[in-house]
Amino acid sequence: MDLTAITAVVAAISGIFVGWSGRARAIQQEIKNDAQSGGALHSDVEYIKRGVDDIRIEQRTQGKRIDDLAERVTRVEESSKQAHKRIDRLDAVPRQERED
């Protein structure tokens, strides 16, 4: 073999080796980037889950407040109705009888 052929073979083998190691490094970098992206995505999803849970808790609390308020309004309406009945009875009695 002459020197040119040996140089060509060595160059081809070293080219294959450099290409292979470069591709391996690129694959490792892609894996690292994917892992970072996956971790960031996972933490974002967890943050959203916590926010949704907080909203649900707040919604339940608001629902309870509304139920309590509706119950109080009902009681006030009943009391007002009774008061109006008493006032109507007083209006039906002549004024002189009330003053005696």
Results as ranks from 00 to 15, higher is better:
63 G>L: 11
37 S>F: 11
33 N>V: 14
6 I>W: 06
52 V>F: 08
96 Q>H: 14
49 K>H: 13
17 F>K: 13
92 A>R: 02
40 A>K: 15
23 R>S: 14
87 I>D: 00
92 A>C: 00
12 A>L: 04
38 G>V: 09
72 R>P: 00
32 K>S: 13
74 T>F: 08
77 E>S: 11
86 R>D: 06
35 A>W: 10
9 V>G: 01
30 E>R: 10
34 D>V: 06
87 I>A: 02
59 Q>N: 06
1 M>Q: 02
5 A>C: 10
43 S>M: 11
8 A>S: 09
31 I>M: 13
33 N>M: 14
2 D>R: 01
24 A>G: 03
10 V>Q: 06
74 T>A: 14
78 E>T: 12
16 I>F: 05
23 R>F: 15
25 R>W: 07
41 L>Y: 13
50 R>F: 10
100 D>Y: 13
51 G>L: 04
17 F>H: 12
84 H>V: 13
50 R>M: 12
15 G>M: 02
37 S>G: 11
84 H>R: 15
79 S>E: 15
90 L>C: 03
47 Y>M: 13
45 V>E: 11
100 D>L: 14
74 T>E: 13
98 R>N: 01
15 G>V: 01
16 I>V: 06
33 N>F: 10
65 R>N: 05
1 M>C: 05
34 D>Y: 12
99 E>M: 09
51 G>N: 08
14 S>D: 03
88 D>C: 01
17 F>N: 08
29 Q>T: 07
88 D>Y: 02
76 V>G: 05
72 R>K: 09
45 V>H: 08
23 R>L: 15
43 S>H: 07
34 D>L: 15
37 S>P: 00
62 Q>N: 12
84 H>D: 15
2 D>Y: 03
91 D>Y: 13
100 D>F: 13
18 V>I: 03
32 K>L: 14
37 S>L: 14
72 R>L: 04
33 N>P: 00
22 G>L: 04
98 R>H: 03
20 W>P: 00
27 I>E: 12
41 L>T: 14
62 Q>S: 06
23 R>G: 09
84 H>G: 11
99 E>Q: 12
46 E>F: 08
91 D>E: 15
48 I>S: 04
91 D>I: 10
13 I>H: 04
29 Q>C: 05
20 W>V: 08
15 G>I: 00
88 D>N: 02
61 T>E: 11
44 D>F: 04
89 R>M: 12
70 A>N: 13
30 E>V: 05
12 A>V: 02
7 T>V: 14
90 L>W: 05
53 D>C: 01
49 K>R: 14
85 K>A: 13
10 V>I: 10
21 S>C: 03
36 Q>I: 15
91 D>Q: 14
56 R>G: 03
83 A>S: 09
69 L>Y: 00
12 A>G: 06
98 R>P: 00
22 G>P: 01
67 D>R: 08
9 V>E: 15
44 D>L: 09
60 R>V: 07
60 R>W: 08
58 E>H: 04
70 A>M: 07
34 D>S: 10
62 Q>E: 10
90 L>E: 01
1 M>D: 05
81 K>F: 06
88 D>A: 11
55 I>M: 05
50 R>D: 14
72 R>V: 03
92 A>K: 01
71 E>S: 12
45 V>K: 10
24 A>S: 10
21 S>W: 04
63 G>D: 13
32 K>Q: 11
90 L>A: 00
31 I>D: 07
86 R>K: 07
87 I>C: 02
52 V>W: 05
27 I>F: 07
53 D>M: 10
44 D>P: 00
24 A>M: 06
